[in-house]
């Protein structure tokens, strides 16, 4: 009985509502249309559009990870680990940039 109980307990997880998933989707679509709009119609602001496109992409990625991938409701360890991985990638990024800037 005890084992069965623990199995049920481990599945007594947060169930995301359909409404929340739909809301997330609406947000992601709006961000996509925004980034296309800026790129197609804001052609004069070249460097700014690259930065904006990457910023919007990162917001979208965060929304997907946080809501669709359930990080918001998962135990803290998952958020800690993804932060470590992204920090590691940032270190790689900075090292590559420094390398090319100092050649």
């Amino acid at each position: 009985m005890k084992n069965q109980h623990s199995i049920e307990e481990s599945h007594a997880e947060h169930i995301t509502s359909y409404r929340e998933h739909f809301g997330t989707w609406v947000g992601l679509i709006l961000l996509t249309l925004m980034t296309v709009f800026i790129s197609v119609f804001g052609a004069d602001l070249r460097t700014i559009t690259v930065a904006t496109a990457l910023l919007i992409a990162s917001v979208k990625a965060l929304v997907v990870a946080y809501y669709f991938m359930h990080l918001k409701y998962d135990p803290r360890i998952y958020r800690v680990l993804i932060t470590i991985v992204m920090s590691l990638f940032t270190v790689f990024l900075i090292m590559v940039i420094l390398d090319y800037l100092t050649r």
Binding site: I15, S17, H21, W25, V64
Partner: peptide, 26 residues
């Protein structure tokens, strides 16, 4: 650009349906 946009929207939508599928099974 428009093919890319269409594919982006399709993938985002499929992300929603798979997330909803998990909620449904739960």
């Amino acid at each position: 650009v428009w093919m890319g946009t269409a594919n982006t929207i399709v993938l985002l939508t499929s992300s929603m349906t798979v997330a909803m599928a998990i909620s449904a099974l739960q």
